[in-house]
Design a protein around this nucleic acid. Sequence first.
DNA 1: ACGGCTCCCC
Length: 680
Amino acid sequence: MVGPADPIALVRTFTFAEKSPSWACKASIVALKSSLNISVVFTTFICSISIPSTCLASCTTLSARLPSWDACDSRMIRTSVLQQTPLLVAQEDPKPQIPELRPSKGQECFPLLQRCKSMEEFKQVHAQILKLGFDWDSCHTGSLVATCALSNWGSMDYACSIFRQIDEPGSFEFNTMIRGHVKDMNPKTALFLYEEMQERGVKPDNFTYPSLLKACAHLSALGEGIQIHGHVFKLGFEADLIVQNSLINMYGKCGEIKLSCKVFEKMHQRSIASWSALIAAYANLGMWWECLRLFGEMGSVGYWRAEESTLVSVLSSCTHLGALGLGRCTHGSLLRNMSGLNVIVETSLVDMYVRCGSLENGLCVFHNMPKKNQLSYSVMISGLAIHGRGHEALDVFSDMLKEGLKPDAVIYVSVLSACSHAGLVNEGLCWFNRMKAEHRIEPTIQLYSCVVDLMGRAGMLNEAYELIKTMPMKPNDVVWRCLLSACKVHQDLEMGEIAGRNLFQLNPHNASDYVLLSNIYALAQRWEDVAKMRKEMKHKGLTQMPGFSLVEVKRKVHKFVSDDKSHPQWNAVYEMMHQMEWQLRFEGYSADTSQVLFNVDEAEKRQRLSRHSQKLAMAFALIHTCQGSTVRIVKNHRMCNDCHTYTGLISKIFNRTIIVRDRNRFHHFKDGTCSCRGFW
DNA sequence: ACGGCTCCCC
C-alpha cells in the first residue's frame, strides 16, 4: 500500500485501480483526502473507473477543506459559457475593406485567416466562411477558433461563441480553447473545459496536457496537477518530452521541487526547456545556490548555449546572491549567443546589475533598451531607490508617465520607497495623493506601510502613528514593524513600546522584531527589559536567523557567519582582521558597543563586535582582490552601527570603494563616508 | 488543416 508521502505513487495506484476498483480506489481516495490539497476531483475520471458510490461521497467532501480553490460548481461556469453572446450573424452583403478577403474555395480561407491582423478583419473572413457554408467543415471551424483564441488581437469571448456553435468539437478545438483560456489568464476555465472534454467523451491527446498543466501551475493547484499527472500516466503520454517539461514546471510552481526533480531524473531525453523549467523552479523558490549549481551541471553535460529564459533564472539567482561577476559573465554569454535581447532579459540584467551594486551598469543597460515595459521602469526606480538616488528615481518615474505607461500599485511602492530612502518626505506624500487622485489606485496596505516608513525615517513618528490609527484598513505587522524600526533610528523608546506591543499581538513569531525592540532598550541602557525580551524569545522558541555576509571572489561566492572559522582560509582572514584593527586604532576608531544585546563587560562586547560576518567578509575580500578595486558585500541583516563606522574607515585607510547591500538598501563607502547619509 | 514547455519588479 502506498503511503501519503508520495503523491505520484498514490496517483499511480489510483490509476491502476481500473483493474480492481473496489479496494484500491477506496484506499486511494481516503489517502488522497487526508494527504493532498485537492479541491476538484475529476469525477468523470473517477466514474470511468467505476468507483463504488461510497467512495464518491468522500470525494465531494474534499472541496470544502481546500484553500486553493473555491467550492465552485463547474456546471455553473459551463452554463455561463453557453450563454455567451451569440455568434455574430454574417452580414447580408459584407464589404471587405481589403479586396483579397474574398475566398472562393475552401482552401483559400486558411491563408486569409493567417493574414488577419485585427478582430475586424477576422470577422470579415468569418462572415465569408459562414456565407459560403464552409463552416460545416471541421477544419475551418478549428482554424477559426485557433486564430481567434490565440492571436494577440484575438478575443476569447468571440472564440467561445464560435466554439459553442460546434456540434462535436474534437480534441483540437478543446486543446485550442484550453490554451486560449490559459493565455487569457483564466486557468480555472481551462480546467473546467478539460472536465467537460472528459464528460463528452473527447479523448485528450499529448497536446492537451502542456497547457492544462500550465493552468495548474498558474493556480498553484497541486491536487489538480497530480490528478492530471495520473491521467497522463494512464493515457501513456508520460514519455512525451514536452508533457514532462510541463510537469516539471507545474510541480515547481506548486512548490514541490522534489517532485519536479523526480520527473526530471526519470526523463530519458531532455531538452533545454527541461533544464530551464527545473532551474526556474529553483530560482522561484529562492533556492539560488541550487539554481546555479544546476546551471553549472547543465553546462557540464554539454548544454553550453542556454536560452534566454534559462539565463533569466540564472540572472535572478545572481541578483539575490549579489554575484556580480557571474552575472556579468551571463551578460557576456547572452551578447555572444543572441542577436538582440528581449525586454524580459534586459529587465533582468538591469535588476541584476543594480542589485549587485553596479548602478552605473544597470543605468547603461536601461538607457540602451529599445523597448521598456512597466516592469523595466519598476526595476530601475526601485534600483535607484535602494542606492539612495531618490531624485533620479522620480525622474525615471516621470519618464515612464510621459511615455504613456500606466503606473500600478507595485510601481508606487518603488516610488515611495525611493522617497523614503532619500528622505524626500514632501515629494513622497505628494505622489501618494496624486496616486489616489490621478491614477485612481486604491492604496494597498503595502503602500500605507511605505508612507509610514517614509514618515518614520524622517523622524515624523507621531504623524506616522496618527496615519496608522486613521488608515482605512486594519494595520498589519508590516506597518507596525516600519514604525518600530523608525523608533530605533530615532531612539524613541515610548513609541517603540507602542509599536512593539501592537506588532507582537499580530505576529508574535518573528525573532528579528524582538531583537529590534531589544536594540531600543539596549540603547536606553534598559538591560532588564533586554533580558525580558530574550526570555520571551526563548519561551516562544524563537531564534534569529544567523547573520551572514557574502562576498564574491573570482566568480565564486564565499559565505561568512559571525565568528566563523569554517572557511578553509579562516586563519589568513583573522590575521588580516588583526592588521585592520591595528590601523583603525590610528584613525581613532573605538567600537560602538551601544547595540550589543548582552550586558557583558566592554571587552567582551568589543570581542563580539569584531567578529561580525561583514568584517570577516571584508578582510577576505581585501586579501583576495587587487588594490583599488571595489569590494562588494551582500548581507542578510541590516548593518549594525559599528560595522557602518568600521567600514567607512576601512574604505579610507585602504583606499577602496566598499559597496554593501544590507537587508534594505545599498551603502557606498568611499573616503570614509557613506552614500546613505544616515537613512538606513 | 491545425497545435504543446521554460523567463522580469514589491
